[in-house]
Design a protein around this nucleic acid. Structure first.
Length: 294
DNA sequence: AACGAGCTCAACCGCAATACG
DNA sequence: TCGTATTGCGGTTGAGCTCGT
């Protein structure tokens, strides 16, 4: 029984439990943990905590190591490339944060989860709709994500979105089989809400090589060349799908890009100076969504 | 400068899955 | 097979920070 979880909170705590520290980690504790793991490796967290002399639970040690102390943890703001990838993978797997984190090197599930809650859900709240609603997903898919692509292009100084493909294999692995795609991205108005059936694509994990068409999220805008900044695909109900041009946010993932200043305020790839607010296009799009009963 | 509202993110909680004896 | 320990995950919380007034 782990002392921090059920055991700790259900019965009366033991003497040892009451001796446990909680709350923010001190620098001394960090040093102890890092040094211990450097010498003995990680794992067996409860035993590790005891052996290292840390008055912390194994769970706490594990969390601190994985989310903060690990040398390969990336810090700083989520880049547009990462944002795209998060949106794309979330559309497929829902709140499977650890699974999503596997495709964002150096990012932790906690960080991605926080990003989603603070940035994405905030905007859903502004729109007074549920973050899992079809309306919100369509707004992401046909409005914001294409703009992210535009921003990335602008930052890269090229019309070619794919500037490098370090993780192309990864997106090929995670892309669902063609039968899962259905006709959804040929007719966005029929796009299924797939955030709740995350388990359906679990088989396409990192160890599975599945080369297939892109997801329904990415298909519409990654393959439309310069036309992807408007909503032509959506309005016509027939976005261009080009299977041989498979890519994804990871296809142009570039950790060296610095969007920190622009990302302090918002996740939106907005055009205006105030990128937290809706512009005319946004409002028009949103009104169309509702008037069409989408 | 002071204050309050809103935001961020590290840490905790509870539960489920898995490992192990 | 069963009971216990451990690990991993997603949801939630709250302290501290930022920003606007």
């Amino acid at each position: 029984m782990d002392v921090e979880g059920r055991g700790f909170n259900s019965g009366s705590p033991s003497e040892e439990d009451m001796d446990l520290r909680r709350g923010p980690w001190t620098m001394e504790e960090d040093l102890i943990l890092v040094n211990y793991i450097a010498n003995h490796g990680e794992g067996r967290w409860n035993a590790l905590a005891r052996s290292a002399g840390l008055k912390r639970t194994g769970k706490s040690c594990r969390l601190r190591w994985l989310n903060y102390l690990r040398p390969d943890v990336r810090r700083g703001n989520i880049t547009p490339e990462e944002q795209l990838l998060i949106l794309e993978l979330h559309s497929r797997w829902g709140n499977r944060w650890s699974k999503i984190a596997q495709y964002l090197p150096g990012r932790t599930d906690n960080e991605i989860k926080n990003y989603w809650r603070t940035r994405v859900q905030k905007h859903a709240k502004q729109l007074q709709c549920d973050v899992n609603s079809k309306q919100f997903k369509d707004a992401m898919r046909y409005l914001w994500m294409p703009r992210l692509v535009e921003r990335i292009r602008a930052a890269n100084g090229t019309n070619n979105v794919v500037t490098s493909q370090p993780n192309l294999g990864a997106i090929q692995q995670v892309s669902p089989p063609a039968y899962e795609m259905g006709a959804a991205h040929l007719n966005p108005s029929c796009t299924p809400d797939n955030s709740s059936n995350a388990a359906s694509s679990d088989s396409a994990g990192p160890s599975v090589q599945v080369v297939s068409p892109p997801s329904d999220f990415t298909a519409d805008y990654y393959f439309q060349g310069n036309n992807n900044s408007d909503m032509g695909g959506f309005q016509s109900g027939c976005p261009v799908v080009c299977p041989e041009a498979i890519t994804s946010p990871v296809g142009f993932y570039n950790p060296t890009l610095d969007f920190e200043s622009s990302e302090r305020t918002s996740w939106f790839p907005s055009d205006g100076a105030d990128n937290t607010s809706w512009n005319v296009d946004d409002m028009w799009f949103w009104q169309q969504q509702f008037s069409n009963g989408v």
